[in-house]
Simulated assay, not measured.
Amino acid sequence: MASIKKFQVTFDCAEPERLARFWCEVLGYVVPPPPEGFATWDAYKQSQPTEQRDAWFACTDPTGVGPRLYFQRVPEGKVVKNRVHLDVRAGTGLVGEKRLATLEAECARLVALGAAHERTLYADEDNESCIVMRDIEGNEFCLD
């Protein structure tokens, strides 16, 4: 019998802390306490060599249920479509116009945080509506 393992989702990005804080707002995640021995994240950053400062950041689900999100700085920018993306389950259990209105309201909230609305996929005979978006560094995700 296979064991269940915890996992984290890792984002390659240009500005780890900025992107982490964006996703905290999207998901209701929190920034964990700074590493042991440091009163603040700024104090931790100042202790690092210049080339390592702002190299990574993380956020966690305060309930402990969702995966940790880890953001690591990479030198290259995003150039192709994501092979994996997050579905933010904002409309779970809702159907029709009520679902669409809920997704549109969440889309407006996220656009105000810097996300971009790509397109709305309207319900058909097989699927309910969802909204395709991009985060502040261009990574695709869906409001589902």
Rank of each mutant, 00 (worst) to 15 (best):
87 D>H: 01
59 C>T: 13
52 Q>N: 14
116 A>M: 11
46 Q>K: 15
12 D>A: 14
52 Q>C: 08
111 V>G: 03
117 H>F: 09
9 V>E: 05
15 E>Y: 07
77 G>A: 14
13 C>Q: 05
21 R>Y: 04
73 R>Y: 06
36 E>L: 05
69 L>G: 06
103 L>Q: 10
78 K>E: 06
136 I>D: 09
12 D>E: 15
51 E>R: 08
20 A>L: 03
72 Q>F: 08
36 E>Y: 01
114 G>Q: 05
102 T>G: 04
84 V>E: 03
43 A>C: 01
64 G>A: 03
78 K>W: 00
126 D>P: 03
120 T>W: 10
92 T>L: 07
92 T>F: 10
103 L>H: 11
68 R>Q: 14
49 P>T: 03
113 L>Q: 09
121 L>F: 12
21 R>D: 13
100 L>S: 10
5 K>Y: 07
22 F>M: 04
62 P>R: 02
22 F>R: 09
134 R>G: 00
63 T>S: 15
60 T>R: 11
139 N>E: 02
13 C>D: 03
39 A>F: 00
4 I>C: 02
68 R>I: 05
137 E>S: 07
28 G>Y: 03
12 D>I: 00
52 Q>K: 15
115 A>W: 05
122 Y>L: 15
92 T>K: 07
104 E>T: 14
139 N>Y: 13
80 V>Y: 11
139 N>S: 13
56 W>I: 00
131 I>T: 09
21 R>F: 01
63 T>F: 00
93 G>M: 02
59 C>D: 01
90 A>E: 14
1 M>K: 03
126 D>H: 15
7 F>Q: 02
81 K>M: 10
7 F>V: 08
34 P>Y: 09
137 E>M: 04
101 A>S: 14
70 Y>C: 11
106 E>Q: 10
31 V>W: 01
60 T>L: 07
66 G>E: 06
132 V>A: 14
3 S>G: 12
93 G>C: 02
109 R>G: 00
136 I>T: 14
53 R>F: 03
46 Q>T: 10
6 K>T: 12
102 T>Q: 15
143 L>S: 07
137 E>Y: 06
89 R>I: 02
23 W>L: 03
58 A>N: 10
26 V>H: 02
4 I>G: 03
55 A>L: 09
134 R>Y: 00
49 P>E: 11
105 A>E: 15
65 V>N: 12
144 D>C: 06
89 R>E: 13
104 E>M: 12
17 E>L: 13
107 C>L: 00
99 R>Y: 01
51 E>Y: 10
12 D>C: 08
130 C>R: 14
100 L>M: 14
15 E>C: 09
69 L>C: 06
144 D>W: 09
64 G>K: 08
69 L>Y: 09
50 T>K: 15
123 A>W: 01
52 Q>Y: 12
116 A>H: 10
96 G>T: 04
98 K>V: 12
106 E>M: 09
26 V>D: 06
87 D>I: 00
78 K>I: 12
34 P>W: 04
67 P>W: 04
120 T>S: 15
90 A>T: 07
1 M>A: 14
20 A>Q: 06
26 V>E: 03
51 E>C: 01
73 R>T: 12
23 W>C: 04
63 T>M: 06
52 Q>L: 15
129 S>A: 15
7 F>H: 09
41 W>D: 05
77 G>E: 14
132 V>I: 13
84 V>C: 12
122 Y>P: 01
40 T>E: 08
118 E>L: 13
49 P>C: 05
71 F>Y: 08
100 L>V: 02
10 T>V: 13
97 E>D: 15
69 L>W: 03
141 F>M: 07
106 E>K: 13
